[in-house]
Computed example of a mutant assay.
Amino acid sequence: MVLLLLLLHSGFCVLLPSPANVSISSYNLQHFLSFWPSPGTPHGAHFMVQILGSRRTRWTSVSDCVDLKPGQTCNLTSDFMDPLDHYRARVRAISTNQTSKWTVSRQFQPLSDTVLGPPDLSLSGCGSCLVLRVRLPTDKLLQVTSMYWELLIHVHRTRDGAEFKLKLPYKQESVIPYLEPGVEYCVSVSITTTFNPTSIFSERRCSFTSPPPSEISQFLLLGLCGVFGLVVFLLLGRLIRIHVRRFKPATCTA
């Protein structure tokens, strides 16, 4: 650590090659910076990271990332506190008596540049509708007011493969109305925000809007239809015979 402070405040020559491919990746608001040592970087060199927010004028060192080895990443999750702020990060190489110029990342906004993973989804029927219960993929989204969230819903009807999509404001419990009673639907959901359309759909969950008729009920219904049809057939036959007898011409006898 003493060596690092001496290097930071000394006026030695800039000779080391700057780090390459400095980038920030993010999943569910977990942010990591990665980089590659450039060709010519000496064995034993280490790397340090600093960040700058749009509301600040001075770069600050990331305490856990002042002595990184090649191939290590820097966790910036706790340093990017405001999900709506814009940040930059920079990396430089340091050796015994040498340092490199800084390599600066592109601008990064936590909420818009993260990939939102699939939410937890449960599904139940409510007659001619489905009730969706959705849990956010990360509690870190609770930092952002729910007015920015939307549910992107993909609905698939099992019987014939018919599909449709809809968007609803995010709620922990939502309803998909105007569905067929007693029919199975499968649903998958993703969470999107006003700032970030990049999200992953949940696994598909399936449910009937209402309990389907049992096989016994179906057989009973078919039996009743058959009996009704037979009765109608017999009645029609009897009516036809009566009609024929009534209008049968009389025969003359000698």
Rank of each mutant, 00 (worst) to 15 (best):
S63V: 13
S188H: 07
F208L: 05
V227M: 03
V22D: 05
I94M: 14
G125W: 05
E150G: 13
L121C: 00
V187M: 14
S210M: 07
S10M: 03
S146N: 12
P70F: 13
T73L: 03
P213F: 09
H243E: 10
S78V: 10
W59K: 03
V91R: 02
S95M: 12
T193W: 00
F35C: 07
C206R: 13
A254M: 06
V227W: 07
C65L: 11
K171Y: 13
R106C: 01
C186Q: 10
S23V: 08
L8N: 10
C74H: 12
G117V: 00
K69E: 15
R205E: 15
N28M: 14
D79P: 00
Y178D: 15
V244G: 09
G71Q: 13
V189T: 01
S63Y: 03
V183Y: 05
V187C: 13
S26Q: 08
L4F: 00
R205M: 14
L236N: 13
F80Q: 09
T96N: 15
T73M: 11
I51W: 03
S38L: 12
R92F: 09
D67L: 07
L132P: 02
H154G: 02
T114S: 12
I216D: 10
V104L: 06
R135K: 01
M147L: 06
I176F: 06
T138V: 06
C225Y: 08
T103Y: 02
L5E: 10
K171W: 11
H46W: 12
G53V: 04
N75E: 03
I242H: 05
S128N: 10
L7N: 05
L5Q: 12
V189G: 00
Q218C: 13
